[in-house]
Protein backbone atom coordinates (compact mmCIF):
# COMPACT_ATOMS: atom_id res chain seq x y z
CA UNK A 1 0.00 0.00 0.00
CA UNK A 2 1.47 3.37 -0.97
CA UNK A 3 0.58 6.63 0.62
CA UNK A 4 -0.18 9.92 -1.06
CA UNK A 5 2.68 11.83 -2.71
CA UNK A 6 3.21 15.56 -2.54
CA UNK A 7 1.34 17.57 -5.11
CA UNK A 8 -2.38 17.69 -5.89
CA UNK A 9 -2.77 20.04 -2.99
CA UNK A 10 -1.33 17.69 -0.36
CA UNK A 11 1.62 19.51 1.22
CA UNK A 12 4.97 17.87 1.83
CA UNK A 13 6.55 17.54 5.25
CA UNK A 14 9.17 20.04 4.06
CA UNK A 15 6.52 22.62 3.42
CA UNK A 16 4.77 22.02 6.75
CA UNK A 17 8.10 22.19 8.56
CA UNK A 18 8.89 25.52 6.87
CA UNK A 19 5.47 26.87 7.83
CA UNK A 20 6.03 25.78 11.45
CA UNK A 21 9.40 27.58 11.50
CA UNK A 22 7.84 30.74 10.09
CA UNK A 23 5.05 30.66 12.68
CA UNK A 24 7.51 30.14 15.52
CA UNK A 25 9.60 33.04 14.21
CA UNK A 26 6.58 35.32 14.33
CA UNK A 27 6.01 34.75 18.07
CA UNK A 28 7.05 37.96 19.78
CA UNK A 29 6.51 36.68 23.32
CA UNK A 30 6.10 33.26 24.87
CA UNK A 31 2.55 31.96 24.48
CA UNK A 32 1.16 29.54 27.06
CA UNK A 33 -1.34 27.91 24.74
CA UNK A 34 -1.30 26.77 21.14
CA UNK A 35 -2.51 29.15 18.50
CA UNK A 36 -5.99 28.36 17.35
CA UNK A 37 -4.97 29.81 14.00
CA UNK A 38 -2.09 27.52 13.10
CA UNK A 39 -2.17 26.82 9.37
CA UNK A 40 0.42 23.99 9.39
CA UNK A 41 -2.36 22.08 11.17
CA UNK A 42 -4.67 22.25 8.17
CA UNK A 43 -7.88 21.40 10.04
CA UNK A 44 -7.48 24.58 12.10
CA UNK A 45 -7.81 26.86 9.08
CA UNK A 46 -11.62 26.98 8.99
CA UNK A 47 -12.16 26.15 12.64
CA UNK A 48 -10.70 29.11 14.52
CA UNK A 49 -12.52 32.38 15.22
CA UNK A 50 -11.22 35.49 13.50
CA UNK A 51 -12.29 37.75 16.34
CA UNK A 52 -10.70 37.99 19.76
CA UNK A 53 -12.69 36.47 22.61
CA UNK A 54 -14.68 38.94 24.72
CA UNK A 55 -13.38 39.28 28.30
CA UNK A 56 -15.91 38.44 31.03
CA UNK A 57 -15.03 40.11 34.33
CA UNK A 58 -18.25 39.18 36.16
CA UNK A 59 -17.20 37.47 39.42
CA UNK A 60 -20.61 35.77 39.61
CA UNK A 61 -20.29 34.17 36.20
CA UNK A 62 -21.56 30.59 36.20
CA UNK A 63 -18.28 29.59 34.55
CA UNK A 64 -16.44 30.47 37.76
CA UNK A 65 -18.18 27.64 39.60
CA UNK A 66 -17.32 23.98 39.30
CA UNK A 67 -19.18 21.06 37.84
CA UNK A 68 -20.35 18.99 40.79
CA UNK A 69 -18.98 15.54 41.39
CA UNK A 70 -20.79 12.57 40.02
CA UNK A 71 -21.29 13.73 36.46
CA UNK A 72 -19.88 10.36 35.47
CA UNK A 73 -19.51 7.25 37.50
CA UNK A 74 -15.95 6.23 38.13
CA UNK A 75 -15.32 2.64 39.14
CA UNK A 76 -12.11 1.40 40.72
CA UNK A 77 -11.07 -0.55 37.62
CA UNK A 78 -11.50 2.38 35.25
CA UNK A 79 -7.96 3.64 35.87
CA UNK A 80 -6.36 0.38 34.69
CA UNK A 81 -6.65 0.19 30.90
CA UNK A 82 -4.86 -3.16 30.85
CA UNK A 83 -7.64 -4.98 32.72
CA UNK A 84 -10.77 -4.12 30.81
CA UNK A 85 -10.87 -7.36 28.80
CA UNK A 86 -10.36 -11.06 29.46
CA UNK A 87 -6.79 -10.98 28.14
CA UNK A 88 -3.92 -8.54 28.49
CA UNK A 89 -3.25 -5.98 25.78
CA UNK A 90 -0.06 -6.15 23.76
CA UNK A 91 2.54 -3.48 24.33
CA UNK A 92 4.82 -1.96 26.89
CA UNK A 93 3.00 -1.72 30.24
CA UNK A 94 3.33 1.72 31.81
CA UNK A 95 1.97 3.74 34.67
CA UNK A 96 1.31 7.45 34.26
CA UNK A 97 0.80 9.55 37.36
CA UNK A 98 1.00 13.14 38.47
CA UNK A 99 -0.85 15.93 40.19
CA UNK A 100 -3.50 18.30 38.93
CA UNK A 101 -2.85 21.79 40.30
CA UNK A 102 -4.21 25.26 39.79
CA UNK A 103 -1.85 28.06 38.87
CA UNK A 104 -1.38 28.93 42.53
CA UNK A 105 -0.04 25.41 43.06
CA UNK A 106 -3.09 24.23 45.01
CA UNK A 107 -4.16 20.62 44.40
CA UNK A 108 -7.34 20.11 42.41
CA UNK A 109 -9.12 17.53 44.56
CA UNK A 110 -11.73 14.96 43.65
CA UNK A 111 -12.06 16.00 40.04
CA UNK A 112 -12.56 13.83 37.00
CA UNK A 113 -9.59 12.94 34.78
CA UNK A 114 -10.36 11.07 31.55
CA UNK A 115 -7.87 9.58 29.10
CA UNK A 116 -8.03 7.96 25.68
CA UNK A 117 -5.31 6.66 23.43
CA UNK A 118 -4.28 4.43 20.53
CA UNK A 119 -3.10 0.87 21.14
CA UNK A 120 0.54 -0.23 20.94
CA UNK A 121 0.28 -0.45 17.15
CA UNK A 122 -1.02 3.12 16.82
CA UNK A 123 -4.66 2.22 16.21
CA UNK A 124 -7.68 3.65 18.03
CA UNK A 125 -10.64 1.46 18.88
CA UNK A 126 -12.72 4.05 17.05
CA UNK A 127 -14.83 3.25 13.99
CA UNK A 128 -13.37 6.15 12.01
CA UNK A 129 -9.72 5.22 12.51
CA UNK A 130 -8.65 3.75 9.15
CA UNK A 131 -4.96 3.22 9.95
CA UNK A 132 -4.14 -0.28 8.65
CA UNK A 133 -2.60 -1.40 11.93
CA UNK A 134 -4.14 -4.18 14.01
CA UNK A 135 -6.83 -3.62 16.59
CA UNK A 136 -6.12 -5.24 19.94
CA UNK A 137 -9.16 -7.16 21.22
CA UNK A 138 -7.84 -6.64 24.75
CA UNK A 139 -7.46 -2.89 24.55
CA UNK A 140 -10.09 -0.19 24.29
CA UNK A 141 -7.83 2.66 25.32
CA UNK A 142 -10.27 4.59 27.50
CA UNK A 143 -9.83 5.30 31.22
CA UNK A 144 -10.95 7.62 33.98
CA UNK A 145 -10.24 8.38 37.60
CA UNK A 146 -10.72 11.06 40.22
CA UNK A 147 -7.90 13.04 41.74
CA UNK A 148 -7.16 12.36 45.41
CA UNK A 149 -6.70 14.92 48.19
CA UNK A 150 -3.27 15.85 46.85
CA UNK A 151 -4.64 16.27 43.35
CA UNK A 152 -3.02 13.04 42.26
CA UNK A 153 -4.21 10.85 39.40
CA UNK A 154 -2.77 7.52 38.25
CA UNK A 155 -3.35 5.25 35.27
CA UNK A 156 -1.99 1.88 34.27
CA UNK A 157 -1.97 1.40 30.52
CA UNK A 158 0.30 0.46 27.62
CA UNK A 159 2.50 2.85 25.73
CA UNK A 160 0.57 3.97 22.63
CA UNK A 161 2.11 3.75 19.18
CA UNK A 162 2.69 6.63 16.78
CA UNK A 163 0.11 6.80 14.00
CA UNK A 164 -0.20 8.35 10.54
CA UNK A 165 -2.72 11.02 9.63
CA UNK A 166 -3.61 12.94 6.51
CA UNK A 167 -2.50 16.49 7.35
CA UNK A 168 0.33 16.23 4.84
CA UNK A 169 2.41 13.57 3.12
CA UNK A 170 4.09 11.27 5.62
CA UNK A 171 2.41 12.93 8.58
CA UNK A 172 2.83 10.96 11.83
CA UNK A 173 1.58 11.87 15.26
CA UNK A 174 4.11 11.35 18.05
CA UNK A 175 2.88 8.84 20.63
CA UNK A 176 0.47 10.57 23.00
CA UNK A 177 -2.29 10.07 25.52
CA UNK A 178 -5.31 12.39 25.34
CA UNK A 179 -6.31 13.91 28.70
CA UNK A 180 -9.53 15.64 29.74
CA UNK A 181 -9.41 17.42 33.11
CA UNK A 182 -11.89 19.40 35.21
CA UNK A 183 -10.90 22.06 37.71
CA UNK A 184 -12.68 23.90 40.47
CA UNK A 185 -14.25 26.23 37.91
CA UNK A 186 -15.74 25.39 34.53
CA UNK A 187 -13.44 28.10 33.14
CA UNK A 188 -10.45 25.92 34.12
CA UNK A 189 -11.49 23.13 31.78
CA UNK A 190 -8.61 21.51 29.93
CA UNK A 191 -8.34 18.98 27.13
CA UNK A 192 -4.80 18.23 26.09
CA UNK A 193 -2.31 15.52 25.08
CA UNK A 194 0.62 14.03 26.99
CA UNK A 195 3.74 13.06 25.04
CA UNK A 196 6.68 10.76 25.82
CA UNK A 197 10.20 12.08 26.33
CA UNK A 198 12.65 12.07 23.44
CA UNK A 199 10.17 11.26 20.67
CA UNK A 200 11.88 11.95 17.33
CA UNK A 201 8.55 12.94 15.76
CA UNK A 202 8.14 16.14 17.83
CA UNK A 203 9.60 18.61 15.29
CA UNK A 204 7.43 17.26 12.46
CA UNK A 205 4.10 17.43 14.28
CA UNK A 206 2.06 20.60 13.68
CA UNK A 207 -0.28 19.81 16.59
CA UNK A 208 2.48 19.85 19.20
CA UNK A 209 4.27 22.68 17.35
CA UNK A 210 1.12 24.82 17.44
CA UNK A 211 2.45 25.61 20.91
CA UNK A 212 5.06 28.09 19.72
CA UNK A 213 7.00 28.45 23.00
CA UNK A 214 9.53 25.63 23.58
CA UNK A 215 9.12 25.88 27.37
CA UNK A 216 5.35 25.48 27.02
CA UNK A 217 5.80 22.51 24.65
CA UNK A 218 8.08 20.89 27.23
CA UNK A 219 5.19 21.02 29.71
CA UNK A 220 3.30 18.56 27.48
CA UNK A 221 6.05 15.95 27.76
CA UNK A 222 6.01 13.48 30.65
CA UNK A 223 9.21 12.62 32.51
CA UNK A 224 10.43 9.05 32.73
CA UNK A 225 10.72 8.31 36.46
CA UNK A 226 12.70 5.22 37.33
CA UNK A 227 11.40 5.34 40.90
CA UNK A 228 7.91 4.81 39.47
CA UNK A 229 8.92 1.80 37.41
CA UNK A 230 8.02 -1.50 39.04
CA UNK A 231 10.48 -4.38 38.82
CA UNK A 232 9.50 -6.93 36.21
CA UNK A 233 6.18 -5.19 35.69
CA UNK A 234 5.95 -1.65 34.29
CA UNK A 235 7.73 1.59 33.37
CA UNK A 236 6.74 4.80 35.13
CA UNK A 237 6.05 8.26 33.79
CA UNK A 238 5.29 11.39 35.76
CA UNK A 239 3.29 14.28 34.38
CA UNK A 240 1.82 17.15 36.38
CA UNK A 241 -1.02 19.21 34.97
CA UNK A 242 -1.53 22.90 35.79
CA UNK A 243 -4.98 24.24 34.98
CA UNK A 244 -5.27 27.69 33.54
CA UNK A 245 -8.22 29.87 34.36
CA UNK A 246 -9.25 32.76 36.52
CA UNK A 247 -6.31 33.51 38.79
CA UNK A 248 -8.44 34.14 41.86
CA UNK A 249 -10.73 31.13 41.57
CA UNK A 250 -12.33 30.37 44.90
CA UNK A 251 -14.30 27.28 45.78
CA UNK A 252 -17.90 27.71 44.69
CA UNK A 253 -20.89 26.86 46.88
CA UNK A 254 -21.41 23.62 44.96
CA UNK A 255 -18.00 22.43 46.03
CA UNK A 256 -18.44 23.01 49.74
CA UNK A 257 -21.90 21.47 50.04
Amino acid sequence: MTGPVAGWGIPSQERITAEIAAAHGSAVKPEHHPRRDFAPYRSSVLRHPHRAPVPVGDPDAAERTAPVLGTRDVRAGDADLTRQHPGEPLGERITVTGRVLDRAGRPVRGQLVEVWQANAAGRYAHERDRHPAPLDPNFTGVGRCRTDDEGRYAFTTIRPGAYPWRNHVNAWRPAHIHFSVFGTAFAQRLVTQMYFPGDPLFPYDPILQAVTDPAARARLVAAYDHALSRPEWSLGYRWDIVLDGPAATLPGPEETS
Binding site: V115, W116, H178, S180, T192, D244
Partner: peptide
Protein backbone atom coordinates in the same frame (compact mmCIF):
# COMPACT_ATOMS: atom_id res chain seq x y z
CA UNK B 1 2.46 35.52 44.04
CA UNK B 2 4.18 33.76 41.18
CA UNK B 3 1.78 31.69 39.19
CA UNK B 4 2.74 28.32 37.78
CA UNK B 5 2.74 28.27 33.99
CA UNK B 6 -0.30 26.35 32.75
CA UNK B 7 -0.30 23.10 30.81
CA UNK B 8 -1.03 24.01 27.19
CA UNK B 9 -4.24 22.89 25.56
CA UNK B 10 -4.24 20.47 22.61
CA UNK B 11 -7.03 19.58 20.21
CA UNK B 12 -9.53 16.92 21.28
CA UNK B 13 -8.75 15.31 17.88
CA UNK B 14 -11.05 13.09 15.83
CA UNK B 15 -11.09 9.98 18.04
CA UNK B 16 -12.82 11.05 21.26
CA UNK B 17 -16.12 9.44 20.29
CA UNK B 18 -15.56 6.18 22.18
CA UNK B 19 -14.13 7.98 25.22
CA UNK B 20 -15.95 11.19 26.13
CA UNK B 21 -19.63 11.11 25.10
CA UNK B 22 -21.80 8.97 27.33
CA UNK B 23 -25.37 7.70 27.46
Amino acid sequence: MTLLPPTPSQTVGPFFGHALPYE
